[in-house]
Amino acid sequence: MSESLFGMPPANVDADIAEGRVALTVDTSLHSLDAIYAAAYAFIGRCYVLLERPAPERVRVVLAPKPSGADGDALRALIGEFANELLSATWRREITRSNRALIEAVTMQAFAGALGSPSLDDLEAFQFGDEPFEDPLGIAQSWEEKYRKKPRTPEEPTE
C-alpha cells in the first residue's frame, strides 16, 4: 500500500512500508538520465534498484533495502540520501563539463607520471586486437575529430 513519508513531498516520494520499498519520482528536465544512473548505481550495493517510466518526462526510482524489514524512518532516510546523491550527481556532471579541460589535463599528467613509458615487456604483452582501446578522455582523437562542429540535431538548444 502506497503511503507518504513525513517531510517528503507526496507528489515525488511514496513508500510501501509493508513491502519495504520507497520511490522517488524524478523530473528528467531537472535531472538527466546520466545523473539518475550515477545516483542509482551508488545504491545497488545495499538496495535493489528499479527504474520505471511513469510518464515521458519522469523516471521513478524504486529502492528496496536488501535486508528486508526496513521501517518508515529507515526508508525516509534512504530516499533522502538518494535525493542528495542525485543532486550531487547532477551538479557534478555540470562541473565536470565546465572543468573538463583542467580535469583531463591533471589526470593525464598524473597517469603519465605514475605509469612512465612502457617497457619492451609491456609492449610485448600488449594485445593488438581489433577492439578499439578505451579512450575516455579522447586523447587519441585528432584535434579535428575532437572539436569539429557536429551537425545540429533538432533537440539541441540554440544560443
Partner: peptide, 11 residues
C-alpha cells in the same frame, strides 16, 4: 579515484 578526488570536479 584520481578523477573522484580531483576537487575541480567536486560539487
Amino acid at each position: 579515484m584520481a578523477i573522484a578526488s580531483n576537487l575541480d570536479g567536486q560539487p
